[in-house]
Computed example of a mutant assay.
Amino acid sequence: MMLLAIEQGNTNTLFAVHDGDSWIAQWRTATASSRTADEYAVWLSQLLHMNRLSFSDLSGCIISSVVPQSIFNLRNLSRRYMNVEPLVIGENVDLGIEVRIAKPAEAGADRLVNAVGAHLMYPGDLILIDSGTATTFDIVAADGAFEGGLIAPGINLSLQALHEAAAKLPRIAIQKPDRVIGKDTVEAMQAGVFWGYIGLIEGLVARIKAEWGKPMTVIGTGGVASLFEGATPSIDRFDPDLTIRGLLEIWRRNASLKD
């Protein structure tokens, strides 16, 4: 069995291939909700070919997307070019965990998949910090249940907002500054956003732990999570593979239910 896992966020979309034993290829592309199944296929076929693979080698597909208007085209990619019906997170897929929030259907697919991937690897109660377009703080109970969480603007979104709302502030790339006090405009923006997010992380983790009342392990993941590595003791582990691990586990669970 060779699985194509598609994890689509608001900014980037990850395509990953698992051969039954390990992940053998991963590629990212910018998320574009108007991209058609045929456009995806042209791009993906070239990358598969570079890895000595083809669509005919792929026998399964699972999709997690937070962009509803893209799901139609991703589903057609699987149907038309792989000749398989994909599993789509949120559409009658058994996650294997309980979703303990008032309206379970409102939970983002990425947050639920992360919960599955984290519970598989880490024991006890967890806080998952996913740094992407948004920065999410999700709580996973020791039994694997998704308990809800918090959503804040992502770090790059904050930089973009500063640039667009203030005429004299330039568009800059985020990086860890050497000091807190900036000596020019760019340094000041980088320090404000970076150390501001460190303060956000430390403050919210402390409040979550105080409200939860039990020990919790904090896991960082997402596109810019590595930027915070070593900058705060509030994050215990960094794990870039939470999502694809969760997708693989959900695929295996649902495949076994069909057998």
Rank of each mutant, 00 (worst) to 15 (best):
T136F: 08
T135H: 04
I201E: 04
R28S: 05
A210W: 13
L200E: 13
A225R: 06
K168D: 03
E229A: 10
A102Q: 15
Y81K: 07
E211V: 10
L3Q: 09
S64C: 05
G9K: 01
V17N: 05
L247Q: 02
P68T: 00
Q175E: 15
G20M: 04
T29L: 14
A188P: 06
L227T: 09
S33H: 14
H49R: 11
L157F: 08
W43K: 12
V205C: 02
L44W: 08
W195P: 06
Q8F: 12
K209W: 09
R207K: 11
G154E: 03
Q190P: 08
T185H: 13
V218R: 10
L204T: 14
W212G: 02
I24G: 02
D110M: 11
S56E: 14
I101P: 02
R79L: 14
M1Q: 07
A231L: 05
V42W: 03
G199W: 03
K258C: 10
G230S: 13
F228R: 02
N156P: 01
I127Y: 13
T11K: 11
A41G: 04
N254M: 07
F228M: 00
R80L: 02
R237T: 15
L4H: 08
Y81L: 07
E91S: 15
N73W: 09
G96S: 09
R52E: 13
Q175R: 09
N92W: 00
I139A: 00
K209M: 01
L4N: 05
L126R: 05
G192D: 10
N83S: 12
A167N: 00
E85M: 09
N12R: 12
I101Q: 03
G196Y: 08
A41N: 14
F137K: 04
A102T: 12
R80W: 01
L162A: 04
L247P: 05
A30W: 13
V193W: 12
D21Y: 14
L4I: 11
S54N: 13
D94Y: 07
G144C: 03
G213C: 01
W251K: 06
S234P: 15
M82F: 12
